[in-house]
Nucleic acid binder design. Structure first.
Lengths: 110, 110
DNA sequence: GTATTTGTTCTATAAACGCCGAACAATGAT
DNA sequence: ATCATTGTTCGGCGTTTATAGAACAAATAC
């Protein structure tokens, strides 16, 4: 397909990260990514939105520095930039993911 | 003046909190609030926006469950709901504030 | 009473956002 | 070459957002 541009660590901003994670669809996707612990094609994670919408969300996550995307064949493999984010903002993504987990556990609906 | 409505702990959502903190003006205000360690009138914290805009931002922070606002005389006193947020999302606000501090330390401009 | 202070609400505007379908691109399979 | 798979990009639509100024409300000071 094509190659993607990713921000370097010092280009990542806190507000950018928070904004990217503040959308339910994106947060849920990041949560799945963290659970699976390995890079995933976009299609392997179920989403409630159209694929063009998901492409937009992945772009936001990528430009915020949260995920790394590479292409292999026809699919684009997405992985969390966990190490780099932990370097830039220690504990941040961890506590967000923990909070997301607890919230979804407390609310069995949806 | 008037009294405000605040969400209960279980009405607070993670995406709501993240969204509220993803705006630079709001995040900066929350940072100041955390540093001062006590409730503050809105006007005591310098902001780059008009007071009507700040009123809007405070409303967002209040409705997200991040701040508590009460009125005394003509001024409205704002305080962080740190304890309640720590109960709902342990470590979250702490790591966001730590990240904000480190980011502003790394970038002496602005 | 009038004036001052502090903040809210209203109205408007411009930008950003989330969403989708259609068209397109690139790879892989038949 | 044709078809299927996997995503991206584009155009558009409706909603939300950040912003500010003007008008308003309430408490305080004079």
């Amino acid at each position: 397909m094509k190659q993607y541009q990713h921000p370097t660590i010092d280009q990542i901003t806190l507000t950018g990260v928070l904004h990217a994670l503040s959308d339910p669809v994106r947060l849920n996707f990041v949560q799945c990514l963290a659970n699976l612990m390995c890079e995933q094609p976009c299609g392997s994670i179920p989403t409630p939105v159209a694929k063009s919408t998901m492409s937009h969300h992945l772009r936001v996550l990528r430009e915020a520095g949260i995920v790394y995307i590479r292409t292999e064949g026809t699919q684009s493999l997405t992985s969390l930039r966990l190490d780099e984010l932990s370097t830039k903002f220690p504990g941040l993504l961890e506590s967000v993911l923990k909070a997301a987990l607890e919230e979804s556990a407390a609310d069995p609906a949806k």
